[in-house]
Write a protein that binds this DNA or RNA. Structure first.
Lengths: 153, 153
DNA sequence: TATTGTTATACTCTATAACTATA
DNA sequence: TATAGTTATAGAGTATAACAATA
């Protein structure tokens, strides 16, 4: 039988096993799935993954330059403008002029942003617990983080 | 000291450790890094990840409907049209009418597509070996795939 | 009616160049 | 001249609606 049998339609389950052994493919599928679940969890707070990461990073590092926060997150500073504009307009973050360098904007959470970030961190902790359970416990989670770190990024 | 000290600029390394413990964040960073390396490896063949996955899936499942291949890959059939058009125009794949259902297009690799897919699979095997080495060997790779599968997707 | 492929469209994310104000 | 923030723009990727052909 040739590889291209034109007389009958192919049927039955599609052979995905070769692709399923590919690290990059499985990494992508898992990432998309986890991000979708993240967005479902954060629908009420109307927070996208990049927005949550930004709030978290500013909360942990108040007073950092816009470009510093952007670079750590792997976001081009040009694209970060719209993101931080959105958080500003929601009253969650503020840009303040640096005393020593009037070119740069230091980022802070507003009081409302602090409270909002607190709620967001609780939702994240809840979601993380769900992920940890799925992956098989904290030991499995640590193993996963170790393996992901070895891949780089 | 308050959390928002306005008198001095924040300096030193940014505290990323809280985010670095977040599965979704690390998953995304690792996926982006692996995909970038994939694209570097496949620059000569001018194949993007989704194009490679498509060639691989068609090669392993000749004669499947366009919509079947698209759905397995998680690509909407509307968006799959442009992707398969590109592979068609490069002479790698062909659409043939199904004998039993003239609505659907069965997908095949052309002879040139077969040869090209063979080369692509070799490049992929080389890249995969690199990933396996990075992650710590085949046992670590199997462990990673197991953990990713538990996350779903 | 339902399905398959297709087109059109919009929205998000990303990448680059160029501008401004500051240094 | 170099840097920080910004704007504009273009390219991917993705989502939905609607259409023609076919079932």
């Amino acid at each position: 039988m040739t590889q291209q049998d034109l007389s009958v339609a192919a049927d039955g389950p599609i052979a995905t096993s070769p692709l399923d052994q590919v690290i990059g493919y499985r990494l992508r599928r898992a990432q998309l799935h986890v991000f979708q679940q993240f967005m479902d969890h954060f629908a009420e707070l109307e927070l996208r993954p990049a927005e949550y990461s930004t709030l978290r990073l500013i909360g942990d590092n108040p007073g950092r330059k816009q470009s510093e926060i952007a670079e750590i997150l792997g976001i081009k500073r040009a694209n970060f403008v719209a993101l931080i504009n959105g958080l500003d307009q929601r009253g969650l973050t503020v840009r303040r002029q640096q005393p020593g360098d009037r070119r740069s904007h230091a980022l802070y959470l507003t009081p409302h942003g602090e409270a909002f970030a607190h709620r967001a961190n609780q939702v994240q902790a809840d979601f993380e617990a769900h992920c940890v359970e799925r992956v098989g416990g904290t030991a499995a989670r640590d193993q996963l983080l170790t393996l992901l770190e070895r891949l780089g990024g």
